[in-house]
Design a binder for these strands. Structure first.
Lengths: 219, 219
DNA sequence: TAGATTGTTAATCGATTAACAATC
DNA sequence: TAGATTGTTAATCGATTAACAATC
């Protein structure tokens, strides 16, 4: 199954974007595309695209380019889009609920099966067809359903303890929206940290640079 | 004001994280820290920390290390934390509301002043003390308040058109949660794309690698 | 066959790490 | 002064780009 062997993080980070653009092309009925054409659309170099794709195998054909539909499906397979990773979400606050409702887990290889919150007043509330459970039920739920992926939408302070517990209950991958850098503690577990605050700060830096000199903020 | 001159994106992306860790240390009453100590906490090399910081100036002192409080505040200044960029949010769906409620804009140099949605049924609804306005009011609002930053929580299809309009109304920076790669069209405008779907796919890739061979998913 | 475009190797560029002289 | 740790230069490493032979 392709020449695997640990692909660099830079390449992996680009895969979802390739997948997205190819999905779009497919939707628009485009049958074939060359690395040069795709590079123009994606604002990358054609070299990089060919280099990236060849980490996984020769998907193209000399003189022709790439077949959009099969390349799309190949990248999907590499990403694991056809999997059904049993997924739970912890923390049904504003963000947790929004993630549960807004993200299409199914098209990304995940199946959201349970939502948990420590706040008793939320227990029973429906979010996108799933009833919120109290955190006390977490252990039983995990034993019965053995989820693999956990989405953490909880406060920073609780993250380490809950993550530890979840690891002991068999969780292998964390999508971590808390303000805590999980990767630091569990190296053998997959962690994707989403630091929305850091992202906004990066934007603020850019805005600060762009507007510096020009005008001062008048609060 | 320091040796500026366009810092590499890799360095900038790390600044919010430095800021976060230093804030934590400060909160815990730590007065000084050496690059080596900080590197252990952050899982970086001490070299990288010194290299990164010296892009902006010599904040340390030989034989002593860095004064936590002043380094924290220096990085804050670099990021623009003390600014008050007038900010609007477009799209008050699940995600838009969650962002408005969940993110502390003030501590990140932004001031959320208006929330807009095209859906008339939402007009008037309060989100974190701000009443949702109809998108029709956008132009008037911008002329009166001249916002600089726009948070986009809108569907992919509308993004380009709305972004174009917002640029014409003076917006300089976009925090873009839509599924559309904005950077492509406006190179002179600051854009921070947050692709939550791509982030989840990256996690799925990791989960796929880690669990491959082991067990197959039984849906 | 001729033209196009890949897969892949080699060259370049940038980012990270190591080393050490400067200095608090 | 001696010890520690920076700021900074040099060495290494990895990622991106360019080039081109292979081949459809």
């Amino acid at each position: 199954m392709s020449k695997n062997g640990s692909i660099s993080a830079s390449v992996i980070k680009r895969l979802p974007r390739y997948y997205r653009f190819l999905g779009e092309l497919k939707k628009n009925g485009v049958e074939r595309i060359s690395s040069r054409e795709l590079s123009e659309k994606m604002k990358l170099t054609a070299s990089q695209i060919r280099q990236d794709l060849n980490c996984f195998g020769g998907f193209g054909q000399q003189g022709y380019g790439y077949h959009v539909e099969s390349l799309h499906s190949e990248i999907g397979k590499i990403l694991g889009v056809e999997r059904h990773f049993r997924t739970i979400l912890i923390g049904a606050g504003n963000l947790g609920k929004a993630i549960a409702l807004h993200i299409n887990f199914e098209t990304r290889g995940c199946k959201l099966m349970g939502i948990f919150d420590a706040k008793p007043s939320l227990t029973g509330e429906q979010v996108g067809g799933i009833a919120i459970r109290h955190t006390d039920e977490l252990e039983d739920f995990c034993r019965e359903n053995s989820p693999v992926v956990a989405v953490l939408c909880i406060p920073k302070a609780n993250t380490q303890a809950i993550a530890e517990k979840l690891v002991s209950l068999g969780i292998k991958a964390f999508w971590n929206f808390s303000h805590y850098d999980l990767s630091i503690d569990y190296e053998d577990i997959v962690v994707e940290n989403v630091h929305l605050g850091d992202s906004l700060l990066t934007l603020t830096y850019g805005a600060n640079i762009i507007t510096s000199g020009e005008e001062e903020d008048q609060t």
